[in-house]
Write a protein that binds this DNA or RNA. Structure first.
Length: 595
RNA sequence: GAUUCCGUAGCUCAGCUGGAUAGAGCAACUGCCUUCUAAGCAGUAGGUCGCGCGUUCGAAUCGCGCCGGGAUCACCA
């Protein structure tokens, strides 16, 4: 049982015995660093039952706890604050208990099936910074949920069909001259993206021309020849036209190859990939079911809708008058399909906050339809990535490309390392690997340390930092630990048998703080899982690394005179290294051995 | 207009299930490399926690109202 729980239970007991009061639980919090103690109980809420002054109440509870909880070394009272000091013995026992083990101990009873959907790209253009945030979040949340004891299925739904896909296809057909990724040396997704832009350019020119002839805006946009052509192409696609389909398959193939490279570089992956070309028809069964149950209604023109006005939302159309379905219909169908397929307990959609309304409606309709699993649906809604001048706009060319961004980060890592004279004795291949680890680490940490639901700012003019609250700083501390351990090994120091050296250890204040931090590792992972927030992990790992950095600076480890202390400090460092490595892996960030 | 998210140091962010004097990093300025990796450590300076009212022994944190910003409110995806 953890110490906070024990203290809480005993406090409840104390209140009962001292004042005859029944209280559910008493919560302790971390003692403010300016005061002596490890855990603090605020006694103000108990004055009602004690009918005594804050100081007296705190002292009485303190005395009771001291007598009944062996781990307590001492306590002090400041106004209404009861500060508890936990003895070294407790922390040293904890230290022994984690020796050589993983810090993670997932709760098996928590073993739920969780689907995490993320990425969801369109196959008409390459991935950009917004996708990067999505991918990193989805991947990291998946890792965190796994660490918290869930069975996670990572999924991706690829938007591979529709009018926007036809745009790049048509443009390539018209102006591509048979260009392929091989022939021009361009990554497939970038090549297709180029033709998407190309389409837009010609289309705009046509619209402008029509407008010049005095045709109203809306009509010009609809009547432009290129618009009519892609609409025709979409119809052909839906009719399974051989020529259109093979063009579609070829160009999507290029895109997938490009995406695979980007995903690989980002370090994300999926257990199951869905394609909208297979799922867009889904959902019609649900309509029939909904109509039968009376959840959905039919209008005179034959269109079908869900009336959500009683819930403070609008009417949502699910089937057009012509019988075709809309985006929402697909999502209803896909959710049902997945529920049948996997029997998930939870399903997390990693999608930007611009779709908050969409998911509200989606979940509500599924609940109204009476599906139990609908309670397990969750929209992991994250804020947009903005540039100093505002939103990224592909039309204005202000989109930050994912591949380019990663390249730049790696190049900056290289440049910085060379300036600092780092890693000079490494093999060339190891150097390249190191620059990747550092550059991509910096990028990932920069994005993940921010609370997902907040919008975040990215300034391309200022490169992402490598100092301070960053991945390279955390990696650096890991590297220092690894260097110590290598040297210890060379010096034949054997710290395997913890029982030999632990008896002669008195904890320094910093060592105790570090042990407390390690002790909180699992709680932190659980919290991050509950909040679906990698930022919780990022902040934890940074705090730990920062504390260690101070410790490392102030405390001799290999240079310590007493051998038992050397061994203790090495083992402590090693444990911290493990915590850093594990924590970073939950963010999808690697740590190097040297840098 | 309605719904919703956000507003903390010059900048980027923590803290928010109410608790003690609001924390980091960057940028600025000062020190510290013949001692375990200086991508580091220590220090100085920088805040009416958007504004007001309320609840409370206690509010950055909870509630209400303003002000400012974003997003959404299609038989688009």
């Amino acid at each position: 049982m953890n110490i906070e729980q024990k203290l809480s239970d005993k406090t409840v007991e104390a209140l009962e015995k001292l004042y005859g009061a029944t209280i559910d639980k008493a919560s302790f919090e971390k003692t403010n660093p300016d005061f002596t103690g490890d855990l603090t109980l605020v006694v103000f809420p108990f004055l009602k039952v004690s009918k005594k002054k804050p100081e007296d109440t705190a002292n009485e509870i303190g005395n009771y706890l001291k007598e009944n909880v062996a781990e307590i070394a001492s306590f002090n009272v400041v106004k209404g604050f009861l500060n508890i000091v936990i003895g070294d013995t407790f922390w040293l026992n904890y230290f022994k208990s984690i020796n050589g083990k993983s810090l993670l101990h997932p709760a098996p009873e928590n073993n739920q099936v969780v689907m995490v959907e993320y990425s969801s790209p369109n196959t008409n253009k390459p991935l950009h910074l917004g996708h990067v945030r999505n991918n990193l979040l989805g991947y990291s949340v998946s890792e965190i949920l796994k660490a918290a004891g869930n069975k996670v299925i990572k999924t991706n739904i690829v938007n591979d069909r529709g009018i926007h896909i036809c745009k790049s296809m048509l443009a390539w057909q018209k102006w591509g001259n048979g260009e392929t990724p091989e022939s021009c040396g361009m990554k497939g997704d970038h090549l297709v993206g180029k033709y998407y832009v190309e389409f837009d350019k010609h289309y705009k020119a046509e619209v402008k021309e029509l407008k010049a002839k005095g045709i109203p805006d809306a009509e010009a946009e609809k009547k432009a020849p290129l618009m009519l052509e892609i609409q025709n192409m979409l119809l052909k696609w839906e009719a399974n036209d051989k020529e259109v389909r093979s063009l579609w398959e070829m160009m999507n193939g290029w895109v997938y190859k490009g995406f695979d490279e980007t995903y690989k570089m980002l370090g994300v992956d999926f257990d199951k990939i869905y394609y909208e070309s297979n799922t867009y028809i889904l959902g019609k069964n649900i309509i029939d079911e909904g109509l039968a149950k009376g959840v959905l209604k039919r209008r005179p023109d034959n269109s079908v809708y869900a009336d959500l006005t009683p819930d403070g939302l609008d009417e949502k159309t699910l089937l057009r008058a012509d019988g075709t379905s809309v985006y929402m219909t697909q999502d209803l169908g896909t959710a049902l399909e997945r529920a049948k397929e996997t029997g998930f307990d939870k399903h997390i959609y990693t999608v930007g906050n611009e779709q908050d309304y969409h998911f509200k409606v989606l979940f509500l309709i599924l609940k109204k339809l009476g599906y139990k699993w609908a309670d397990g649906l969750y929209h992991l809604s994250y804020g947009m990535v903005e540039l100093p001048e505002g939103k990224m706009k592909s039309r204005e060319g202000t989109v930050v490309d994912a591949d380019e961004l990663m390249e730049e980060m790696i190049a900056t890592a290289k440049k910085t390392a060379e300036e600092l004279g780092k890693a000079q004795d490494l093999e060339e291949a190891d150097k390249q690997q190191l620059y990747r680890t550092i550059g991509l680490g910096a990028l990932k940490y920069f994005i993940l340390k921010v609370d997902p639901k907040k919008k975040m700012l990215f300034n391309p003019a200022e490169s992402i930092d490598f100092n301070g609250n960053t991945a390279p700083f955390i990696q650096f501390n890991y590297v220092r630990i690894r260097a110590l351990l290598r040297k210890a090994k060379e010096g034949m120091l054997n710290f395997d048998d913890i029982n030999v050296f632990i008896h002669n250890v008195t904890l320094l204040p910093k060592e105790k703080e570090l042990l407390i931090k390690l002790y909180n590792f699992n709680t932190t992972v659980q919290q991050a899982a509950a909040e679906y927030s990698p930022a919780v992990i990022a902040n934890y790992v940074y705090d730990l690394a920062k504390e260690y950095s101070q410790y490392y600076h102030d405390t001799p480890i290999l240079k310590e005179e007493k051998k038992d202390l050397i061994l203790f400090r090495l083992q402590l460092s090693s444990d911290i290294g493990n915590a850093i490595k594990t924590g970073m892996s939950l963010l999808g960030i690697e740590v190097p051995e040297r840098m």
